[in-house]
Lab assay of single mutants.
Amino acid sequence: MEQGTVKWFNAEKGSGFIERENGDDVFVHFSAIQGDGFKSLDEGQAVTFDVEEGQRGPQAANVQKA
């Protein structure tokens, strides 16, 4: 798993970007967020995640709040 920080997340659209510790920013969709309840992330929040190849390039998967 990688570690990173939420660069921004739009709760209305359900997507945003995570700033990786090593590498380019990666797209995140709300469906990749693990946990119960409303799936959203806050700017500056620390997260851990896997990276998968999506239709438009790398994207975060199995996102967990650190």
Rank of each mutant, 00 (worst) to 15 (best):
A11P: 13
D24S: 14
K39Q: 08
S31R: 09
V63Y: 00
A61F: 12
G54R: 07
H29R: 00
D25K: 09
V63S: 01
T5G: 04
E12D: 11
D36Q: 12
K13I: 12
K7A: 04
T48P: 00
D25Y: 14
Q59T: 09
D36A: 12
E43C: 15
F30Q: 05
K65L: 14
V51S: 03
F17W: 10
F17I: 09
F17S: 03
K13M: 10
A66G: 11
T5A: 05
E53N: 12
M1C: 13
G14R: 00
G37V: 05
K39N: 06
E12Y: 13
L41F: 05
A32V: 06
I18M: 02
G37E: 06
G57Y: 06
A32W: 02
S40P: 03
T5K: 12
E19W: 13
G23A: 09
V28F: 11
G23N: 07
F30V: 08
Q45S: 08
E21T: 12
I18Y: 00
V47A: 04
D50K: 13
E21I: 11
M1Y: 09
E19K: 15
A32N: 07
F27R: 02
V26W: 01
K7M: 02
K7T: 06
H29C: 10
N22G: 11
E21V: 12
E12C: 15
F17R: 04
L41V: 04
V47W: 01
G57C: 08
K7C: 08
F9K: 01
G16C: 05
F38R: 06
R20L: 06
H29N: 03
G54H: 09
F38Y: 11
V51Q: 04
G14P: 02
F27I: 02
G35Q: 10
D42N: 14
K65N: 10
D25M: 15
V51T: 07
K65A: 12
E43G: 11
V26K: 00
A46V: 13
A46C: 14
L41T: 03
E53W: 15
F49H: 03
R56Y: 15
K13W: 10
V28S: 03
Q3P: 06
Q45I: 08
V47I: 05
Q45C: 09
K13L: 11
V51P: 00
G16W: 04
V26S: 02
G35W: 10
G57S: 05
S40L: 07
W8T: 06
G23I: 01
F27Q: 05
N22S: 10
E12G: 10
G54K: 07
G35C: 10
G14Y: 00
H29V: 02
Q59L: 07
F17D: 03
A60V: 02
E53T: 11
Q34T: 11
Q3V: 14
F17E: 04
A60N: 00
G57M: 04
E43T: 14
V6H: 02
E21C: 14
P58N: 06
E2H: 15
E2P: 04
E52A: 10
A46T: 11
L41H: 01
S31G: 06
D36W: 10
V63P: 03
F30S: 06
G44W: 04
D42T: 15
K65S: 11
G44I: 02
Q45H: 08
K7Y: 02
G14D: 01
L41Q: 00
V51G: 01
M1V: 12
A46I: 13
K13D: 07
G54S: 10
R56T: 08
Q64M: 11
W8Q: 06
E53A: 10
G14F: 01
V26L: 12
Q45M: 11
D25A: 08
E43H: 13
R20C: 08
E12S: 13
V47N: 03
Q34K: 12
M1N: 14
I33Y: 01
E52K: 11
F38V: 08
F38W: 14
A66V: 15
A32H: 06
D25S: 09
F49E: 02
Q64C: 11
Q64D: 08
K7L: 06
F30G: 03
G57N: 06
G23H: 07
I33T: 04
L41E: 02
L41W: 04
A46Y: 13
D25E: 09
V63G: 00
E21H: 10
K7G: 03
I33M: 03
E2A: 09
Q55D: 12
E43K: 15
V6L: 04
G35L: 08
Q3Y: 15
G16N: 00
D36L: 12
A11Q: 12
E53D: 12
F9H: 04
Q64K: 11
E12N: 12
F17K: 03
D36V: 11
F27K: 01
D42I: 15
V63D: 04
R20Y: 07
A11F: 10
G35P: 01
T5S: 08
R20P: 04
G23D: 09
V47H: 00
E12I: 12
H29F: 07
S31N: 06
I33Q: 02
Q34P: 05
A61L: 10
V6F: 01
G4T: 00
R20A: 05
W8P: 05
P58Y: 08
Q59P: 04
G16P: 00
N10Q: 05
S15K: 10
E43M: 14
E19H: 12
A66H: 12
Q64E: 09
W8E: 05
F30R: 04
V26A: 02
G35M: 13
G44V: 01
E2Y: 15
V63Q: 02
F38H: 08
N10R: 00
R20I: 06
A46S: 11
D24K: 13
T5V: 14
F49I: 01
R20T: 07
K7V: 05
G4H: 01
E21N: 10
E19D: 06
Q64R: 13
Q59E: 08
A61R: 09
A60D: 04
D24V: 13
M1H: 13
D42S: 15
P58V: 09
G54D: 07
A32E: 05
N22M: 09
Q34C: 13
N62G: 03
D36I: 11
D42M: 15
P58I: 08
E21M: 11
D36N: 12
K7R: 08
Q45R: 02
V51F: 07
E12A: 13
S15T: 14
S40D: 05
G23R: 07
V51N: 01
G16I: 01
Q59D: 02
R20N: 05
S31W: 06
S31I: 04
V26P: 01
N22K: 09
E12R: 13
A60M: 00
E52S: 09
F17Q: 04
A60Q: 01
A61N: 08
A46R: 14
F9C: 07
W8R: 05
K65D: 08
G35R: 00
V26C: 06
S15G: 07
E53Y: 14
D50M: 14
K7I: 07
S40E: 06
T48W: 14
V26F: 05
E43R: 15
Q34L: 13
N62H: 09
D50S: 13
S40F: 13
K39I: 06
V63E: 02
G23W: 04
V63K: 00
E12F: 12
